[in-house]
Write a protein that binds this DNA or RNA. Sequence first.
DNA 1: ATGTGACTTAAAGTCCGTA
DNA 2: GTACGGACTTTAAGTCACA
Lengths: 75, 75
Amino acid sequence: MKKYNEEDALLFIVAANLKKIRSHKGLTQEELGFRSGISKNYISDFERGRRNITIKVFQRLIEGLEVEPQDLLTL
Amino acid sequence: MKKYNEEDALLFIVAANLKKIRSHKGLTQEELGFRSGISKNYISDFERGRRNITIKVFQRLIEGLEVEPQDLLTL
DNA sequence: ATGTGACTTAAAGTCCGTA
DNA sequence: GTACGGACTTTAAGTCACA
């Protein structure tokens, strides 16, 4: 498991949920990127905790995944 | 009511909720800024829909307000 | 299908001041 | 107590070539 700071807690929760839900839905990073208008590299970075996304990007990811905001926030 | 783009929907929901909860708790922008380590100007800007905050800042605001993430996302 | 480094540009976020 | 502006520094957005 990756080590993370307290200040990054929510970020890592969102990233982990994104990765889990994305694969459960059978989507690749590239496909999700296409659906949400975000580069696959960026999604890769985010899932590994290397990006601090904005709310706008968060919304686009949710829409691409077809889930609700809270689905990415709940542990 | 302020006009906003579809792509800003979540942002405006969060901003409106922040403002509402903050005042209900009797906190000023400055006090919330102090608690969450964010400048009062930035909070003012955000509440008026002029800023696209990151997840890290979102987390700090939540902690400063002492609420749960979903409290800022639910309409 | 995903991870990484390096990169440019756009925007996040601060601080000063005024009203 | 909040809104708004200018000037500023730091970081996120977004892409690319390649492993």
